[in-house]
Design a protein around this nucleic acid. Sequence first.
DNA 1: ACTATATTTCAATAATTCTTGAAGTATGGA
DNA 2: TCCATACTTCAAGAATTATTGAAATATAGT
Lengths: 115, 115
Amino acid sequence: MIRRMDSGFVVRALGALAHESRLAIFRALVVSGPPGMAAGRISSKLRIAPSSLSFHLKDLAHAGLVQSRQEGRFIFYSANFDAMNGLLGFLTENCCEGSACAPRASRSTRHGGKS
Amino acid sequence: MIRRMDSGFVVRALGALAHESRLAIFRALVVSGPPGMAAGRISSKLRIAPSSLSFHLKDLAHAGLVQSRQEGRFIFYSANFDAMNGLLGFLTENCCEGSACAPRASRSTRHGGKS
DNA sequence: ACTATATTTCAATAATTCTTGAAGTATGGA
DNA sequence: TCCATACTTCAAGAATTATTGAAATATAGT
């Protein structure tokens, strides 16, 4: 499911990560790998009130950065590595081509239309 | 001058980029390279009201993602590639280590299937 | 000094996001 | 069924962020 990298998705994903709690949640999910972590465990581990956590997880999920699966009474959340990879690719290509950022990669002179 | 990559900076930088106008501004500055662009030119090019633009540029500057220099009556803004590089490095290292994300070494040399 | 240009700051408002207790939904076990 | 656990949604206020006209600041040229 290769997600088209329009600026709408990028803005949403950046916004989702642009919050102390959500960045911490995402980092914890990255560390926990594909199996992910149950919501309750994230809540106790990061000391975030359940309802706040739910709010933030919903935001991350809506941005496409995390996904969930139910397992018994638990809901496991896990990082969407493809989405993060896509975001990083976009930032590298679109926000880093002018100078030292990219190691001498595409010097694309074509910037047709806004996405 | 190497900036410490604490989550405070990261959250601020992500937040600065997490807005349609600011992302567009930053992308334009990246394309314009080290010389950057005068505020008025950004304003007319992106159709952003001067006072709004000022507000957003201040946010980007405060996040360390852009810098300004005065040249006569004009104020030129330019992207801070080091900061962007640092942000990308943080994201790659801290938010992508669990699975398929970037192979670190060859990141950004080529990304198949952009928009 | 005066005028025009370039940009920022102010101020008031509008819009969005965050937080959390309480109530609601869902699952599993006795 | 009843109860406990796991998690989400609701609601309403608090906090933050965004927008923009008008006023202010700064530089350049005359």
